[in-house]
Nucleic acid binder design. Structure first.
Lengths: 215, 215
DNA sequence: CGATTGCTGATGTGATCACAAAGGATCCAT
DNA sequence: ATGGATCCTTTGTGATCACATCAGCAATCG
């Protein structure tokens, strides 16, 4: 799911469009229900309808966009049931990924996570929703990359993608002064080599924000 | 992932092609490495390259097909690491799905599972690889549908899809006389309301065959 | 004043075409 | 016989076009 081609030497037009839209969706730069048109995308990226269509179809296949019965495409408006299910999926997958990353997590990685976490805190203090989502996902991805489980990570990213448009809405309702407390628990558990603690911390981090959105 | 459109009233050309190819891949009717061409697909289904391309792109996005650097498309040849990872994913997801289905599993469902299981046994005795794969997946899907977790089920089916072309290769090496013993354990655990037993049985069923393929 | 019907612009779909690149086969040289 | 270079066929990509359909809006009627 991450890289369509095994070699990304020649970025085709549809791939460029795909990546741009994907990033926009995953980072909460689209609101739920917001519509897109093929001709509009084509115009924005200077391509014809063909690559625009392929990008959109691919994103629809990944659940990042919704296709209405008439073929109109828009960012999904998730039901509470679906949000809860996606949150459960995040918990299931990311706990496993973190657990697999734990034995390989050396100091260099933990340092990097702490640096990223400072950026997360900065985004929170700046009330930068998009920046917060991006750095937060970067924190998780950096950890999970150590799990050496690309298929699992790809699926986890697909779940993030599906939650993207809903994320910003979450940020709005969220008690914003919250520094990333759970991230510190994750880092502490990594340092201590405490697997049960790590699993719990990841589960809490992933579940907490989404629970209040669904409820 | 399952239904591209919320309403499947008007089956568009690319959707028809997509479904046909998807079924072919998932049921092991394509060998790993087998190539496809857009014009060939178009000719086979009586459509132009456009719907053929969309179907293929969608299947590539789902990991059901592999796109070479030059855009050529073929059924994936999975590495052992990837097979093991996909097996782990199946275990993770399907144990959860079974666990969620358990409290909702009434007698009617168990009866249905037993009927399907007879078909599985029949396919095994007939040495029908495709039929075996199809009925086996039907067994699992029937159970998981009770979990009321469409997103999770969709992801599980994506994993099945990725394993599809490899499945038949598995069947060849598999001790074929094996009747679906683990399926009986699953049914027994469902009858007894035994959640730990169910989790173990599902994990064994999902993991066993794939382990020897990867090893 | 509100609901319904009819219309118009906008939108997705699929076909076709031109083009570039890749793969394979053939031919030649060693 | 074998290795390599060359040519040609096949293949994917992206653009454009014709067509059917849908959404939104306006005019009309109750």
């Amino acid at each position: 799911m991450l890289s369509q081609k095994t070699s990304d030497a020649a970025p085709s037009a549809h791939d460029r469009v795909y990546r741009a839209l994907r990033s926009r969706i995953m980072h909460g730069q689209m609101s739920p229900g917001e519509a897109l048109t093929l001709r509009g995308i084509g115009k924005e990226f200077g391509v014809s309808m063909t690559p625009a269509r392929e990008s959109v179809r691919r994103l629809v296949a990944e659940g990042a966009l919704t296709l209405s019965a008439s073929g109109r495409v828009s960012a999904p408006e998730l039901s509470n049931e679906r949000i809860e299910e996606l949150a459960a999926l995040r918990a299931l997958l990311e706990v496993e990924l973190a657990s697999r990353a734990l034995p390989r997590a050396h100091m260099a990685l933990i340092d990097r996570l702490q640096t990223i976490n400072m950026n997360v805190a900065e985004m929170v203090s700046k009330r930068d929703a998009v920046g917060y989502i991006r750095t937060n996902l970067e924190f998780h991805r950096t950890l999970y990359l150590r799990a050496q489980a690309p298929a699992m990570l790809a699926i986890a990213e697909t779940v993030w993608l599906q939650l993207g448009p809903t994320m910003r809405a979450l940020y709005g309702r969220l008690g914003r002064t919250e520094p990333p407390h759970n991230h510190k628990l994750i880092i502490a558990a990594l340092k201590a080599g405490d697997e049960p603690g790590l699993r719990l911390a990841v589960r809490s981090d992933v579940t907490h924000g989404l629970r209040l959105l669904a409820g």
